[in-house]
Nucleic acid binder design. Structure first.
Lengths: 334, 334
DNA sequence: TATCAATATGACAGCGCTATCATACGACCA
DNA sequence: TGGTCGTATGATAGCGCTGTCATATTGATA
């Protein structure tokens, strides 16, 4: 069946340990023997057993990605990014869905570590902010990196974008177009990014000397139907907004649907913008002006931080970008 | 740190082997000792090391899911379904992206098995039809189940839906509405489902006594932009179709965008339908009439077949459903 | 030439489990 | 009463690697 390190060592005419040295790129192996071993490995198409490595060694060559997010696009990009970096490193990725609000989260993470002996963990938002989870990881001394954490910023390395600035940029863009009544749909209350985007919206209004009107701000949950609900309320106002900024693309799609349903033309009668730049944004009609969140790159960078794991804590901030499409224009003259 | 089976056996006052028996639900353990062991396990919060189990035993308590698909929604549903079933079984899932067209696919799968000793493999379309992959699995005697295979139907257990019938149903629905010029956008050539959906479309035309017009059929690739391209060609025809059936929702979104861009009202000027019923379908304007493909359930069932693995080959076929939304109506009177 | 560090290799234990085989204890039948 | 079976438990080996320590072998230096 599958060959073992013993088979390789027999063919190469060296000890098992020397084969192990070659596999792990340890020092103190002569060029000559290294080549002999590598030839034997290739000949047998030998792959070391992960299980045996874990059991015998300190490293497991596995990391876990823990996520709780209901946007398939977001998860997909996170997975893809982390996975790409793992491939480069020759490390296996265990993708672990979970429930950030579950009281058993810490226990589940502990179980995962005991069972798999992963070398490190990547937490994506909002699991990043589950206090039990962080404690569990620290108690076990497992290195971890967080993607877009909202709290305990100094507790671990992390990667993130500047949600406040991005929301500020987007709001300022709408103001620059001439909008003064700008609706806002907040994200899911579990995600810290929600607060930050709201804050950026307010900051931009302040800077422009516009007064913040609570009636123009509606709660949401990052999903399509909460966008619809918020859109309906906003457009029912006596003085409806001329632009609506939804905290993510899914909710923006909901707003767009409401506008269509009411026979409003976008962007002529209403400008709509989102956040994330998921595939959805460019597949809607009209294509959505949005903020490009570098999700894949954030995930890639997070894995990088984990592997480079110097002991110091590092925060990497990746740039966002305004993506201007066809869902925005100057407001209609009243 | 993490406790071992030895710690448990000490506390419970039994041998390691007896603890092992309890963990594996083997026969021949008295009720009394079983309870004692279970109490000790709970007390220590003990989780057996997967690595040690793999190394010592025959089973690895891991299965792999191999996919190559660029629709995040589809992957997400597949992953979710398989994962749900794995949880029930207490089995770990390794999700493995891959490239179905790669000449190294078989070798990669072989490597995965050697490294991880997975107990079984789930292949999702189109990896299901990569001949090298199947050979590799059979040669190693690893049980595998395929989700929506297109070829070698008798070679393994599988789960699938009836793509031909579904496309037939959808086409018949359009015909029943009064459409006679029905455009069709084919799926990605790598996926067998593409052929089957095309076949179903033709069968429905035949049954209704409509002649098949090659000019109404355009190639596609299951992505948004190929839908746009096909839509443009179809709507440029001297006698354009009054309805367009795209082989998946992403492409239907592309067609919808083309229609909007031309100032056509959907469904008044053009009916558009898709296939899959991804989240996208209900987030578009107008909401898309489509075929609900039971992706999550297919994945769940596939994992079930793998675990039940009687030696016989089983094919499970899950029902589809026409989801009628607002993107279809009778054609405009000429 | 003797000494030492740097380099190169191997012998062997043991990681935490499961498989195999041995053993012990009733219960039951002839 | 002894033999046999089904049930319940333990002792021990070993899965395929890596870590530790011991042991060459080299080249440079005193």
């Amino acid at each position: 069946m599958a060959s073992t390190i013993k088979d390789v060592s027999a063919i190469a005419g060296v000890s098992m340990k020397t084969v192990s040295r070659v596999l792990n790129k340890e020092r103190y192996v002569s060029e000559k023997t290294r080549l002999r071993v590598e030839r034997a490995v290739a000949e047998l198409n030998f792959r070391p057993s992960v299980a045996a490595r874990i059991l015998a060694g300190k490293r497991s060559y596995q990391i876990a990605l823990i996520y709780d997010n209901h946007s398939p696009h977001y998860i997909h990009q996170i997975q893809t990014g982390v996975w790409a970096r793992c491939i480069e490193e020759g490390v296996r990725l265990l993708a672990q869905p979970s429930d950030a609000a579950s009281p058993f989260l810490a226990r589940e993470i502990g179980g995962l570590i005991d069972q798999t002996q992963v070398d490190g963990v990547i937490l994506s938002s909002p699991v990043t902010d589950a206090p039990g989870a962080l404690e569990e990881l620290e108690q076990r001394g497992i290195p971890y990196v967080r993607i877009s954490p909202g709290t305990d910023y100094d507790r671990s390395s992390s990667v993130s974008m500047d949600d406040v600035q991005a929301a500020d940029d987007m709001t300022s863009h709408l103001i620059a177009l001439g909008h003064t009544r700008i609706g806002f749909v907040i994200g899911h209350p579990n995600h810290t990014a929600s607060d930050q985007r709201l804050f950026g919206y307010r900051r931009a209004l302040d800077k422009a000397g516009l007064t913040f009107e609570p009636k123009y701000v509606r709660p949401g949950a990052f999903d399509f139907s909460s966008g619809e609900a918020a859109g309906d309320v906003l457009l029912d106002l006596a003085q409806p907004p001329t632009a609506i900024f939804a905290s993510n693309d899914d909710m923006a799609a909901g707003v767009l649907t409401v506008a269509h349903r009411r026979g409003m033309a976008v962007p002529r009668d209403l400008s709509v913008v989102g956040f994330d730049d998921t595939a959805l944004a460019s597949q809607l009609w009209p294509p959505l002006t949005t903020v490009r969140q570098p999700t894949r790159d954030l995930a890639y960078a997070a894995a990088g931080l984990l592997f480079d794991a110097a002991d110091e804590i590092v925060h990497r901030r990746l740039p966002h970008e305004l993506v201007l499409r066809a869902s925005t224009s100057a407001p209609k003259r009243a």
